[in-house]
Every structure is written in C-alpha cells, then in structure tokens.
C-alpha cells in the first residue's frame, strides 16, 4: 500500500488540518460549501457532504469539483463510505477528504472507498495510522481503490501485492 505523500509528521499539518494525504497536487485553498450551496453556485470548487446529503446531487457537476469533504460527525455513521464510493464510481478524480470523527480503525476501509486525504478532528498516532493503512495484505471485494480482490488473484488475475 502506498505511503501518504504528506503529513505523517506535525510539520506537515496544513489546510483544514489534513493529517494524511495520498496525492501530490496542490490543495484547494478555499473552504468547502454545503451541497445545496454548491449546486446553486457556479464558482465554488470545494463541497462538503454531510451524512444526510445525497452524493448523487453532485454527479452533474463533477468536472468543476476539486475537493469533496465527507463529514463523519460520529465514526459509527457509515453513510460517508457509500457517498465516497458513489463519487469515485462516477469517475470523480479530485480530492476526497474524510473529516470529523475519523479514527485509526476506520482508515483502511475509508481508503478502499476512495478517500485520499484525511483530516481527523483529533490528531492520530502516526505509527498506529501507518499500520492501519496496511491492515489487509489482500482484500476480498472489489472497491474503488484499484486493488485486485482475492477471487481475481485466485483465478489468474494480476497480483495486487500479496506476498506471492
């Protein structure tokens, strides 16, 4: 699994307290607006999805979005995982940031659902996080992270990085 490109040490703490980021483009420097505001406003390029929002409302506007923040007010509310996947499945290639109650043990699943940056409300232990991102040697399902699932590997598919 890829190392985060920025942010495992405290120096790298920047915009919106992003702690881990797996992309090397410039970060968007203006605040994200709500889905409602975004849809009615043509110049915003950053939007924030709350658990009750429908990510599909954004699908017509994907080409002008550079950052989607998905808020997790409580880690137990998993709607954001579906929101993330829906955006990635629709071809969204911009930054997808998990914000809020983002904890160690949700990182690997979030990554699989297409999140490529993480701004936890409470800063995470970097070593624990590194281990968490690498939790699964292989994966059982196809998601949107490009990893070949185990059943593909079993039947002659490309090895996505298991140990041989």
């Amino acid at each position: 699994m890829a190392e985060p490109i920025s942010g495992t040490d405290s120096e790298a703490r920047e915009l919106d307290d992003v702690q881990f980021r797996f992309r090397n483009d410039e970060m968007v420097d203006h605040p994200a607006v709500t889905v409602d505001a975004f849809v009615g406003q043509t110049n915003a390029s950053a939007v924030r999805i709350e658990p009750g929002d429908d990510a599909r409302d954004l699908l017509l506007h994907l080409d002008r979005i550079a950052l989607v923040e998905v808020n997790f007010p409580s880690f137990g509310d998993g709607r954001g995982y579906s929101a993330a996947r829906i955006l990635r499945e629709a071809g969204y290639a911009g930054e997808l940031r998990a914000v809020g109650d983002v904890l160690i043990d949700q990182l690997s699943h979030m990554r699989r659902c297409g999140f490529d940056s993480f701004a936890p409300a409470v800063r995470l232990d970097a070593t624990d996080a590194e281990r968490a991102f690498a939790t699964w040697p292989d994966v059982y399902q196809a998601a949107v992270d490009g990893r070949a699932p185990i059943w593909t590997l079993r039947h002659g598919g490309r090895d996505g990085g298991g140990n041989g």
Binding site: S82, H109, R112, C113, W136, I150
Partner: peptide, 14 residues
C-alpha cells in the same frame, strides 16, 4: 461470507 468479510462500505451500517 468472503464478500461480506471486512467489507469497506458496509462495516458501519445503521
């Protein structure tokens, strides 16, 4: 069983 094990999208259902 395999599909549902550690499912990234469905581990925090309602």
């Amino acid at each position: 069983r395999q599909w549902s094990s550690f499912h990234p999208e469905f581990s925090y259902l309602p």
